[in-house]
Design a protein around this nucleic acid. Structure first.
Lengths: 238, 238
DNA sequence: CTCTGAAACTGACAAAAGTCATCTTTTCCT
DNA sequence: AGGAAAAGATGACTTTTGTCAGTTTCAGAG
């Protein structure tokens, strides 16, 4: 499982347009580019660990990574699933704290590492970029507030439905009248996203399937009836 | 219930030292000071509403304010309780979105309003201040990640215990071997913090009381045995 | 190809927590 | 002070969800 390096110029990166680096002036972008190290990770490898100190920022070029916390009993809660274009580990870096979560590769990934110093340098001398980062962080916070309220007062069934719709939005591949979620999640991981037990997810998924809301396609889920799923999510009983 | 204005120079504010404005150079602080409007609010009054657009930043000079979301069934979830020195409404302001939560006064409050333009001006021309704000926001995010994981996998009993300890840390007034939580919360509000039903909170609180972990003092709660409370919070069964 | 371990699934059961109804106490308004 | 309304408290009951134990299916290693 040796780490394999690769290299892509930031300017040529397919995901630059989806990234916060988009719109950076050439000078700053080349500073980032010149200091980055790009590594290929295999499924199951860890990018960083809870309790360690960040030394830089990760920028996703390919694959999927889950960011999660383990509780005392060893139960996982997935905070975020990172996709190409996303930053990884910026929270702890910017708050100058230890990582509070662990990042593990879900699907083989290509990730660039930007040393703390280079990132902070660009951040300091480029107020526009700084503003964009702040804006993104605060937007992210808003999503977390949503999640908190959802977790506090919605049933598991509603949360599962809501999360399937969310995954559809983010990883959905449109088909004819249905959408395939392009992310092979285990039932266990899905349970860790929803915040429930694996068995409960299995039971609810097969209910959703019998009711024609979703279908299984290998390890992936196809959303057949998003509208009905939304009803399940919102507790619109009508 | 007319709003009453008052005025205190920022430089003389008792809570400057607890605030993000602490350490601001005199010039920038006076810019903030010259543009602020300070208002006294009574218990029950609203500072801002979910769905409206922020026009500035609120800075707490006195009292307590709850920031919460209402769900479809009208159930409240309290995201944050702001105390003197805290900023209010900065998330939506910085992400340039609508407010996602409502802020209501819990205990008569004095709050200064700083117009968006003045705040952004200082933010733009003072990178150090910007860095401090980013750091604070990212720290806050870390706390929210904790809360998410807690909500996902801890029982109501554990969460109530954990929240009492948290309130003790933030609003605690040390006594002899016990600590009074200086915040008069209704059972309903406490339930909205923990994310459960009011009845459940009532039952658990009286259990904690019978077990000698806490005591009631008027509308306030005194933490008698923080250690045992921590055991309740952590699921350390030993 | 087959063996092995992990993941997916199912059922039975228990525990946790929500809901509803009712009653008491406190608070606040005039 | 008196009365209405809100908050607090309690009991009975239901529903949801977690846990445990066991079975089946699948995928990868050798």
């Amino acid at each position: 499982m040796a780490k394999v390096e690769f290299n892509i110029a930031c300017t040529l990166c397919d995901h630059l347009k989806d990234s916060l680096f988009n719109g950076l002036n050439p000078e700053d972008l080349s500073r980032i580019n010149n200091h980055k190290t790009c590594i290929q990770y295999k499924k199951g490898q860890n990018i960083f660990y809870e309790g360690t100190r960040p030394t830089g920022l990760y920028c996703m070029n390919g694959g999927k990574v889950k960011v999660y916390k383990n509780n005392v009993q060893g139960k996982e809660f997935i905070i975020y699933i990172a996709k190409p274009g996303d930053f990884l580990g910026y929270r702890a870096l910017l708050s100058e704290e230890f990582y509070q979560a662990t990042a593990t590769v879900l699907e083989d990934a290509k990730i660039c590492f930007i040393p703390k110093e280079s990132f902070f340098e660009v951040l300091q001398k480029n107020p526009t970029f700084m503003r964009r980062v702040v804006q993104a962080v605060c937007h992210e916070m808003g999503l977390m507030e949503e999640k908190l309220a959802e977790l506090a007062h919605k049933s598991v069934r509603e949360r599962l439905a809501a999360n399937l719709l969310m995954l559809k939005e983010t990883y959905g591949m449109e088909g004819e009248g249905s959408t395939l979620i392009e992310l092979a999640l285990s039932r266990e991981d899905l349970a860790s996203i929803v915040g429930t037990a694996t068995e409960t997810v299995i039971r609810l998924l097969s209910e959703f399937k019998s009711d024609g809301l979703i279908a299984f396609e290998g390890k992936k889920i196809r959303v057949i009836d998003a509208k009905k799923l939304a009803k399940q999510a919102d507790l619109i009983i009508a």
